[in-house]
Amino acid sequence: MKDIVGSDLGAIVEASKLLSSDCSTTATLLKLLEAERRVEARQGLLYALCWHGDLGTWDLMIHILADLQEAPKVRGQAAEGLSYMFMSVRTDSREFEAAVHALRDALKDPSPEVRYCAVHALGSTGHPPLIPVLQEMREDRTPVPGWVGTVSDEASRAIEMLEGLHRMRLKNGC
């Protein structure tokens, strides 16, 4: 636990990977996140929390994504966290609408990393009405350092993912 809020970037990464598979740490990670201000540690804490799939973190992820005072890496990680939980949320719910609203706002973000992660998260909704929004993002040819390709590339992948997830939702009666 101490490594995830330490100063060694490698240790933060390793700790976040280890803690991501231990859902019993959710409450502790949330407390640490509340007190932590360093970008790398906040990103590591969110990474671990994302994999827990705890819908209790849904509103927190939306809040962090929408907070322009947060670093792009942290906001992108919050978008990724939402992407992991979308299949557990009904498309006609308040939670779904709030997340989609925040993600659509993030598509206008000055940071290509935030836009890339928002595009990915919208693709994970499995919600066909979002296809035109993702098609528009195919125009954003901004490369994203540390990620695969451009925002446009991710928009194309997100459309494919959305269509596949939609078929899965239909098959499962959701």
Rank of each mutant, 00 (worst) to 15 (best):
M1T: 12
D3V: 07
D8V: 12
G10Y: 09
A11Q: 10
V13H: 08
E14V: 11
A15H: 01
S16I: 08
D22L: 15
C23G: 14
C23D: 13
T26L: 15
T28Q: 10
L29A: 09
L33S: 01
E36G: 11
R38G: 04
G44N: 09
L45D: 00
L46Y: 03
Y47A: 04
A48W: 04
D54A: 12
D54G: 02
L55I: 08
D59A: 13
L60Q: 05
L60D: 02
L60N: 02
I62V: 14
H63Y: 07
I64G: 01
L65T: 01
L68R: 11
A71L: 03
K73N: 05
R75C: 10
G76H: 02
G76K: 06
Q77Y: 04
A78Q: 08
E80K: 09
L82R: 02
S83G: 12
S83T: 05
M85Y: 00
F86H: 00
M87S: 03
R90D: 05
T91E: 10
T91A: 15
S93W: 04
S93D: 01
E97W: 07
E97P: 01
A98V: 03
A98M: 04
H101E: 11
A102I: 04
L103T: 11
A106V: 01
A106K: 02
A106L: 06
A106I: 04
K108Q: 09
D109W: 15
P110H: 12
P110C: 10
P112D: 12
C117H: 15
H120M: 14
H120G: 03
A121T: 06
G123P: 00
T125D: 03
H127I: 07
P128N: 14
P132E: 09
P132L: 14
V133Y: 04
Q135N: 10
Q135F: 12
E136M: 14
M137N: 00
R138A: 00
R138H: 01
E139Y: 11
D140I: 13
P143I: 12
V144A: 04
P145C: 13
P145L: 14
G146N: 05
W147F: 14
V148C: 11
T150L: 12
E154C: 13
A155K: 02
S156R: 10
R157V: 04
M161Y: 02
M161F: 06
L162I: 08
E163N: 11
G164H: 08
G164L: 09
L165A: 02
L170V: 10
K171N: 07
G173Y: 05
C174V: 10
